[in-house]
Design a protein around this nucleic acid. Structure first.
Lengths: 329, 329
DNA sequence: CTGAAAGCGCTAACAA
DNA sequence: TTGTTAGCGCTTTCAG
């Protein structure tokens, strides 16, 4: 294959044993004498042998590859999920093949096909919404599939997450209980982030049940979340002066809003209340603790991966979320 | 392999052509008639064929896998590098296999060996410091290697980054030019993050050249960077009241320090000046723009990947950094 | 333009 | 305990 790539055959020859014997020793599987073992190991070390898993996987059964598809690397949420999954992957001797979809179903489809061509032991994907073909590919692959971060809907196989609609509802209930009446919503494109869309719907629905509606809402088209929060808050307050509380699509945006308030001498939460989503450190250690919903992101990645590798049966696992009362709302 | 996995042989049979012909059509390589093409494609689609790259790679030359090793997923810096590299990887039809070392040389070694067993087209690793065996494995692999984020030292093959020592020096020069005299340093364990250690040395060395020394310094052992910055700043100010400016290992810590000031009514920069490192959004959109050094993280991943795939010759590429004057120092 | 045949490097029976 | 023998699914000469 590559220049200088030592093969099992060469190691076996150098050790003066058959290929299969060398293979058994190297994988520590099957039986062989102590003397043989030493000779093979010595030969392997001396030649700098690195097993070729491509050949190994082809000859045996499944690979130790785990395909992981996340929408974005900019968003800490997905890094956290990846981190959780990776901890288990490492511990169990698997390897992560990761792809970034940019929230694009077509890209997701292409990446699924591409990953499946490596016959991964399992596929982890974000969310429950996938194209028809993605679903078909996944179903036909025979690999275990685990959908993460959302449980509001039917899954393909394993599903591990929390209810985004429920999170939106909880946020609304909290703000209503605090006595706020005029609400604003600041988010990003739902077409891409369907989970944020579910939170929005839960939020609005809960307001509606209380006989209220959003006073203003905006989808900010700026790429940086913090900037979007800051700019969006500014614009909304100017446009709709009576807004008392803003529900943000995530903590980054909420922090942006908080920065706007700090920079403009607006007192939080009396002049403007802020509510985020995720429970990031930046909100936790801000001058005023951000009111938000803490999601078990690392745990989701970890649990999902663990269940997949344990061969758990198809099921939906709700890891819940925790409302952080905070000081901003 | 997996149950239900359709093979090329089956597609060929269904299309009524030989295996090699089907292979040529599917890879769009070599020659075949239009009619054959259509039959093969139809058969493949109908059977839901997903090529097996494991077999393909074994039979042909190299894989389309790129091994990427980063120290941490918690630190946005590495997500950014990964993002840059991934953009190119995607565009060129490669796949990223990622591993997280947790700044641990042993883990790095194990992951390098494990990744090399998949015969990746290239390996991207963070930094220039590696164990003897890691270096040997990489050198013997025949794969291209690209070391990222640091150029202060000799590399194995391609090196793309900026000078961390230079960044430390630039930070010191800036603070000295601003007239500060009593400095503090707040960071994390250098044994793990050698790049932060290089910045520290550049900083201290520059102070020394100006006839100054650090008034106080601390390695904060808290896991969250923002929290570490907030807590560490608090402790340092209490312990060494005269400190005028703190140089932080990164922006997260600096933001933590900034939050401490905001929460305690300390005016920045007059009562305490803050200087970070990285140029993250959180500092860019804070009430006062964070004084820091912006590093081209995404560009480093992108450039490194591009050079590797273009087969560029071994070299060190300095992508530099930009000092952000900011309002906190 | 197409098919037959020989592997790629390794694993997994099966004998010995 | 060991070696021999078939493949794993695909690509790649090389004839036809």
């Amino acid at each position: 294959m590559l220049p200088g790539s030592v093969t099992l055959t060469e190691v076996a020859a150098a050790a003066g044993v058959g290929e299969s014997t060398a293979s058994r020793v190297l994988r520590n599987h099957g039986s062989f004498s102590q003397a043989t073992r030493e000779r093979v190991l010595a030969a392997a070390a001396q030649l700098g042998y690195v097993p070729n898993r491509i050949a190994g996987t082809l000859a045996s059964a499944g690979s130790n590859l785990i395909g992981i598809l996340i929408p974005s690397l900019t968003n800490i949420v997905f890094s956290d999920v990846l981190r959780g999954a990776n901890a288990v992957i490492d511990a169990e001797g698997f390897q992560a093949v990761v792809g970034v979809t940019n929230y694009d179903p077509r890209r997701e489809e292409a990446l699924v096909a591409s990953m499946l061509s490596w016959r991964p032991a399992a596929m982890m994907v974000a969310g429950l919404e996938h194209s028809e073909r993605t679903r078909a590919l996944l179903a036909a692959s025979g690999s275990r599939v685990c959908e993460l971060l959302d449980i509001d809907g039917p899954g393909l196989d394993l599903v591990v997450g929390f209810s985004n609609e429920g999170a939106g509802r909880a946020a609304a209930r909290h703000l209503l209980a605090r006595g706020y009446k005029r609400f604003g919503y600041l988010g990003r494109d739902f077409g891409r982030d369907t989970r944020a869309g579910k939170r929005y719907r839960g939020f609005v629905e809960t307001l509606r049940e209380a006989g209220l509606t959003l006073a203003d809402e905006e989808i900010v088209p700026v790429s940086s979340s913090i900037e979007a929060g800051r700019v969006g808050t500014d614009r909304m307050l100017e446009r709709t002066p009576g807004v008392e509380a803003i529900y943000y699509a995530n903590d980054d945006m909420a922090i942006g809003g908080y920065f706007h308030c700090l920079a403009n001498g607006l007192s939080v939460p009396s002049q403007l209340a802020l509510f985020g989503h995720n429970g990031l450190d930046v909100g936790r250690f801000a001058p005023q603790v951000m009111s938000t919903i803490r999601t078990p992101r690392v745990g989701i990645g970890e649990t999902g991966m663990r269940l997949v590798l344990a061969g758990a049966s198809a099921q939906t696992v709700d890891l819940g979320f925790e409302l952080v009362e905070g000081e901003t709302a």
